[in-house]
């Protein structure tokens, strides 16, 4: 049986958080969630020691996905943690900005849960 991975999903949409909880939870992930970049940083500071991978949206209030990725890459603890962007955006400019900030990959919404699972397994292997 595959090892249980702990994923933090960061998305300001409650509907998307619910969708991700079902999609990833049913595929054996332990799922924690935050509603924006600020909430994610606060949660990670307190409880993030065993997080294996982070999935983040881009457009969020307070601190967006780019800011979150940059803040995490500034911390030794999360410098190597895989971070996957999951966004409705698909422009090369936005992807390049995410790559420059330190993102590990990008998935365009709407997403296929099996492909998301496959990508998460690959980047945490």
């Amino acid at each position: 049986m595959a090892e249980e991975l702990h994923v933090l999903t960061v998305d300001d949409s409650a509907s998307m958080r619910a969708l991700l909880r079902v999609a990833l939870g049913s595929r054996g992930y332990r799922v924690s969630q935050a509603e924006d970049g600020v909430a994610a940083l606060e949660w990670l500071a307190d409880s993030g020691d065993d997080v294996d991978v982070i999935v983040t949206d881009i457009n969020m209030p307070r601190l967006d996905g780019f800011g979150l990725i940059e803040a995490l890459r500034d911390q030794v603890r999360f410098r190597d943690c895989p971070i996957l962007v999951l966004s409705t955006e698909s422009s090369d400019e936005k992807k390049a900005r995410a790559r420059s900030a330190g993102a590990t990959g990008w998935i365009v919404k709407p997403f296929d849960a099996d492909r998301l699972d496959s990508a998460l397994r690959r980047i945490t292997h």
């Binding site: 590990t104 990959g105 990008w106 998935i107 365009v108 919404k109 997403f111 296929d112 980047i123």
Partner: peptide, 12 residues
């Protein structure tokens, strides 16, 4: 039909 970019996975 779905948009071509939908579900696209790109690992950096």
């Amino acid at each position: 039909a779905p948009r071509p970019a939908s579900g696209e996975v790109e690992l950096f």
